[in-house]
Design a protein around this nucleic acid. Structure first.
Lengths: 141, 141
DNA sequence: GTAACTGCAAAATATTTGCATCCTT
DNA sequence: AAGGATGCAAATATTTTGCAGTTAC
């Protein structure tokens, strides 16, 4: 753990509130990505759905979390590594979605390879999404 | 164009109906991926929203189209290449989402590089999503 | 005290299901 | 004719916006 959760908020000019601390802790404890709905369930409906959406947007704007493209019709978020900052994301690891348990893993060690784009295309964000069976679900089937 | 649209439907044991033919044509004419909402707009609301969802699901089951992970809260679909079949997708090209015009391009020539996964993880589908400015929007800004 | 944050109400958007009717084969 | 496909109604899920009340600093 790099810094305390409240330092992370302070460093980004965000007020330290119960909701924000709790949401950040959920992200740190989770080994996968979380959707707004996941957070609502984790909290036991203790904080408002709207607050969750607004908190996620605030974290996204500050570069504390990043969004992960998903095959479902919901947006997933995961906590950023140190190299990220406001407006700049350097999240170059792949993500793995398990089609059995539904969990999304950050494969921190799997670096997204560079590819050559067609003339005129400039990429700012790159996401590599792998779907299949995770190590957990491999065993149980 | 490989085969006629109606042959494509017949080969997959799907009845040839106006809606299905039209939707397939939209996919073939589009150089990008389409969402259920896109199709509704393209049709001028001529076919029911529900029919669009059910048609997309049928095409997906048969391997005629595939879904593309998206950063938005909507699902995107694109037509599959010949190598795809029921239950088996070999869609190994990257997709590019333009953050200016919002269009999703299939980069047919950009092959997704192979990566080494952690022990126990088995990938079935691989998606490389690049976001940034497309060649069109590059000029206009 | 003030700006920022939260909660409630409500609207907008996206997706799913049931059922009656219509069309393809 | 029979099974599959569509349209309508309605329910559920997801996300956004406005505003009033509350809290962090």
């Amino acid at each position: 753990m790099v810094a305390s959760v409240s330092d992370l908020l302070k460093n980004n000019n965000l007020s330290v509130t119960d909701t924000r601390v709790k949401i950040l802790e959920y992200f740190m404890e989770s080994d996968g990505a979380l959707s707004p709905g996941d957070l609502e369930r984790l909290s036991g409906k203790n904080f408002d759905r709207v607050t969750i959406y607004r908190t996620l947007q605030a974290f996204l704007d500050k570069g504390i979390i990043h969004s992960i493209p998903s095959l479902e019709n919901t947006t997933l978020y995961a906590i950023c590594k140190d190299e990220c900052s406001e407006g700049r994301h350097f999240d170059n690891h792949a993500h793995f979605i398990c089609s059995v348990c539904g969990k999304t893993y950050c494969l921190d060690d799997v670096v997204i390879p560079n590819v050559k784009l067609p003339k005129g295309f400039v990429a700012i964000q790159r996401d590599l999404i792998l779907s299949g069976k995770c190590s957990h679900c491999q065993i149980n089937i």
